[in-house]
Simulated assay, not measured.
Amino acid sequence: MAGHSKWHNIKRRKESQDAKRAKIFTKLSKEIFAAVREGGDDPSTNLRLRMAITKARAENIPSDNIERTVKKASGEAGAVDYDEITYEGYGPGGAAVMVKALTENKNRTAADVRHAFSKNGGNLGENGCVSFMFNRKGQLIADRKDEIDEEEFMLEAIEAGAEDFESDDQSFYIQTDPDNFEQVKKDLESNNYEFLKAEIILFPDTNTALKDEHAEKMIKMIDALEDNDDVQSVYHNFEADEEQLSRISY
């Protein structure tokens, strides 16, 4: 599958060990808030809100908390509004990086993102410098469970309209056209499949392997960016295998 790499699994293991619930809730609340302000509080007609709520539920955010955030966002005028900003640049070794942020303080966020890049050997670029290397795709990730037959799951995914299907020792990965994403998800959920993540993301056209010293800095840069409350998503074309990751500290 284009854009998939072992880095995803390392990231998942790290998240399971040290994720801070408050930080996750802050990021998801901001996304829900921005979605409501943009398209209203009805998930049936607001795709962005529908997807934000799906993410929140996947992270086990209580329904009461989700509902309170939606109500707050749809309340009185004058409530905080977030600016959506995309930063583009290159990580150490030349890997392409895109950062999506939601912030009420653009100067603070720009300074923080620039610092994360420069501290780890990367550099920010102009808008458009790397975005042409990425395409929007739907991604569905399911835990690999003993009761799931891989071949049957793959056939059902393709029949539902998936573009690609891949697996490793932990998970199944389904890629879709963004326009078919919801239908594929709905069809597979109707067959009792559950997903750890279901979202529209940016996939790189090609992946970039890095030398160990650059790979280590790249991982530290990604961690620093994702640790920022204003940063919603970090996309990159960095690819590493388990052998390399075992050699470096991350």
Rank of each mutant, 00 (worst) to 15 (best):
M1K: 06
G3F: 09
S5N: 08
W7I: 15
K11A: 07
K14F: 05
K14H: 10
E15C: 05
Q17A: 10
D18Q: 15
K20Y: 14
R21V: 14
A22S: 11
A22P: 11
K23Y: 04
K23N: 11
L28V: 08
I32M: 03
A34R: 00
G39E: 06
G40W: 07
D42A: 13
P43S: 00
L47T: 14
R48L: 11
L49D: 00
M51D: 03
A52L: 08
I53Q: 02
I53E: 00
I53P: 00
A56E: 01
A56G: 02
E59Q: 13
E59K: 10
E59D: 12
N60V: 07
I61K: 08
P62Q: 12
S63M: 15
I66K: 03
E67G: 00
V70E: 00
V70L: 03
K72L: 06
S74N: 15
G78D: 01
A79K: 05
Y82T: 01
E84C: 04
Y87D: 02
Y90H: 13
G91F: 02
G93V: 02
G93R: 09
A95H: 14
A96P: 12
V97C: 08
M98R: 11
M98W: 04
M98K: 04
V99A: 05
K100T: 11
A101T: 08
A101V: 12
L102H: 02
T103N: 00
E104R: 15
K106N: 07
K106W: 03
R108L: 10
T109E: 04
A110R: 12
A111W: 10
D112A: 12
D112C: 09
H115R: 14
A116N: 10
K119W: 00
G121M: 10
L124A: 06
E126Q: 13
N127T: 04
G128E: 03
M133H: 15
M133V: 04
N135P: 08
Q139T: 10
L140D: 05
A142C: 11
D143F: 14
R144C: 04
E150R: 06
E152Y: 09
E152L: 13
E152I: 13
E152K: 13
L155N: 15
E156L: 12
G161N: 02
D164Q: 12
F165I: 03
D168L: 12
D168F: 01
D168P: 11
Q170A: 08
Q170C: 14
Q170S: 09
S171G: 07
S171H: 13
S171E: 04
D179S: 12
D179L: 14
E182Q: 09
V184H: 01
K185V: 00
S190R: 14
N191P: 07
N192K: 13
Y193G: 01
L196H: 14
K197D: 09
K197C: 10
I200W: 06
I200P: 01
I201Y: 08
F203R: 05
P204M: 01
D205L: 14
T206V: 09
A209D: 09
E213K: 15
E213Y: 15
E213T: 04
E216T: 04
K217R: 05
I219E: 09
K220W: 14
K220A: 15
I222F: 02
D223I: 12
E226I: 03
D227W: 11
D227S: 11
V231E: 04
V231Q: 05
V231C: 01
Q232W: 08
F238E: 05
F238M: 09
E242P: 06
S246H: 10
S246T: 07
S246R: 05
S246D: 07
